[in-house]
Design a protein around this nucleic acid. Structure first.
Lengths: 150, 150
DNA sequence: ATACAAATATTGTTATAACAAATGAATATA
DNA sequence: TATATTCATTTGTTATAACAATATTTGTAT
């Protein structure tokens, strides 16, 4: 289904707006699918995002600003987001000794095990969605999206 | 800049996740740009979205469910979103005589004039972003995004 | 007609996000 | 060294979103 149908646009959209809307609607669709799956794990998308970032650190702790700059969707209060993950025992935080303004945040063993359970569910969704186009097309869209953000 | 750099991914991303992340990050980028511009008009993105939907009705009022199914980002409480627009005098609501469960929502003259001011600002952003790729590429991405949502 | 179910919107409540201000620590400057 | 400035995070407050429950009207079956 094309975007015009999807959002039931009544009048013809200019080419620029059509692409913009399509990207936004598609992103929304993806978020809905992933968010729905994460609900089964009592995890929000930003929380999942932070967990993956911390795992990506491979043991090395991250401070708040590092997390923020790597998040898909930048957010104002990452502190409280981390608080939630700490409350669940998935993450831990110690104040950095070298620079006591900073904090060192890292994923716990429990957090890693938890992610390990969640991963395949999300992987399935991601591959299911992207499998509808081929590798060449995938790569092309990647390039073009990069250009749009340039 | 590619997504790996943009989100500073430490390890190589599988092709499926890379595309998914790229779409999400790009959508976020677009929303940030548009949201920033709308702030000058004291308007949120969903509010702007509703106004455009109502204008698209060309005089014919819309009820809540119609608005919801046309929104880029489906939301649970459209009632209160419309309330905000009514408070600003940009929209009006009367209960539908034919089916008194429904309401008839329409954009006011003031709302139309207001949109007319906002439009060029958003148009500029949309064309500025999309002008970085050509028409053929634009069309191709549109098609492929449609397939991803299929 | 009456009762029951479905449609449509609203309201209440709780969680999350956005924004601004404040804290505390490090660094630069005089 | 004292003071100001900047940095990194936290906290308070307000706005918005998500979720569940509640009207209210309509449609349907008996």
């Amino acid at each position: 289904m094309n975007i015009e149908e999807t959002i039931k646009a009544t009048n013809k959209l200019p080419e620029s707006r059509r692409l913009i809307l399509n990207i936004l609607v598609t992103a929304n669709h993806i978020n809905d699918r992933i968010g729905e799956a994460l609900k089964g794990f009592d995890l929000s998308i930003p929380q999942f995002n932070v967990l993956r970032i911390l795992r990506g650190q491979k043991g090395k702790p991250a401070n708040l600003s590092t997390i923020q700059e790597r998040m898909v969707s930048r957010m104002s209060n990452t502190t409280r987001l981390v608080d939630k993950l700490i409350a669940k025992g998935l993450v831990e935080r110690v104040t950095c000794e070298a620079n006591r303004r900073k904090v060192e945040i890292s994923i716990t063993k429990k957090g890693l095990e938890f992610l390990h359970e969640v991963d395949p569910v999300i992987d399935n969704i991601e591959t299911e969605i992207t499998s509808r186009i081929n590798s060449v097309e995938n790569e092309l869209i990647n390039e073009k999206l990069n250009e749009l953000r340039a």
